[in-house]
Design a binder for these strands. Structure first.
Lengths: 223, 223
DNA sequence: ACGTGCGTTATACACCTGTATAGTCTCTTG
DNA sequence: CAAGAGACTATACAGGTGTATAACGCACGT
């Protein structure tokens, strides 16, 4: 449950302990958690938090930046992997469960930390896709950026949605739960990604013909 | 903005007007909206709401059942279409924007209405997929139920995620916004569904060999 | 005509929220 | 030793929350 892994020495202060505790509470109980909840979980009084951080909003943004920093560290440590896969690996590291859930929560409600990490994942996916196309394992797309954004938002959104179905997940259960969900979607994902679902090419072809026609006549219809 | 479409005559009471107003406020401001907010939007006092519904939780569940009922009516009216597509069509009907956003919000936070509708979408997807396989437009899956669940949660979760990125969307803008998102994902979706993304079959084949092996030795490893 | 019921409001209560204030303890440093 | 700084607490305040209570007005049926 401790999250005191790779932090600058100067950050091991009581302030930092409070921040980490807040991250755990935000992850476990959501961002609506009260200052007093956070204080109680850290074993301190409520006033101490406002004394250190000024306001709850300020504490929240400090948690955001810390979580993003942790995420970056974890990513740069890991080997280059498919963007999504490395996310799910993080969920299995018990020490980072709080960070993981915090990020998911932030993504789900469009928070700044979530937005930032999502965009990062998308850029990663674009780069990964380009490498894949070059080496021949990934098919090329007519709009690689749109495809990357679509793939990332779909898989991440899908996992978040399935996690939301679990009423309230204990911080200790998040690892096994994510593992279970990933197991369940692996087969459909691989099927879809290598074979598709639609057997008839005409749907795509007709759309392409329509889209081409629309884009060439666009300048005329909307002057 | 009115939502007084197909309702039993006995339901046109003041009580129902309050409920519909509550649905709009919940959709616009989230489920954290206060009773006084709802009352103000309906042009009545706060006490009237608790007088009619007893408690806020009770009001919420009545909104849930009404929204699910509306959804069912809308679905049975519509022609048989791909499950997802009919959802996005609903978003374009201005009169149902509140219902639509309410459902999305409920799905996003794992609420009962959202859960119910999600499961309904999945069952629809299974049936639709079976028809598609029979007529030859849809490829068969090694686990049709898992694929249906995966496809529904991914596409719905993806849309919800992209909608969450919009800071706070006015109820009047939800139609155009959903339209824009759907436009952006149409090409990647069609590409993925008809051509896939992975050019190399080995990933799928290796997984299948691994999965088969695991399932046949399962009874021995876990006695 | 009258009271009975229903829609409706106003007011109050208890609780929880974030935050400001003042004070206490402890430890370091001159 | 004195002093001061920083960690920490206790208490209080103002505002918002859900909800209970009492009262008001109006229509309607007998």
């Amino acid at each position: 449950m401790r999250t005191a892994e790779p932090a600058p020495e100067s950050d091991l202060t009581a302030r930092a302990r409070l921040r980490n505790s807040a991250i755990e509470v935000f992850a476990a109980r959501g961002f609506g958690a009260s200052v007093r909840d956070i204080a109680a979980h850290a074993g301190v009084s409520a006033g101490l938090i406002t004394h250190h951080f000024g306001s709850k909003a300020n504490l929240r943004t400090e948690c955001d930046t810390e979580v993003v920093r942790l995420y970056r560290v974890l990513k740069s440590d890991g080997i280059a992997r498919p963007p999504a896969q490395s996310m799910w690996m993080i969920a299995e590291l018990d020490d980072y469960a709080a960070m993981f859930v915090y990020i998911l929560r932030s993504v789900r409600e469009g928070g700044p930390a979530g937005k930032q990490i999502l965009e990062h994942l998308i850029e990663e996916a674009i780069a990964f896709s380009e490498e894949g196309v070059a080496s021949g394992v990934v098919r090329s797309s007519r709009d690689p950026a749109a495809r990357a954004r679509y793939l990332v938002t779909s898989s991440l959104g899908g996992i978040i949605l399935q996690l939301s179905l679990q009423p309230q997940l204990e911080l200790a259960e998040v690892g096994p739960t994510v593992r279970r969900i990933v197991d369940e979607i692996t087969l459909p994902t691989l099927e879809l990604y290598t074979e598709g679902v639609i057997a008839d090419r005409r749907f795509l072809d007709e759309y392409l013909r329509y889209a081409n026609h629309a884009s060439t006549t666009e300048s005329e219809t909307t002057p």
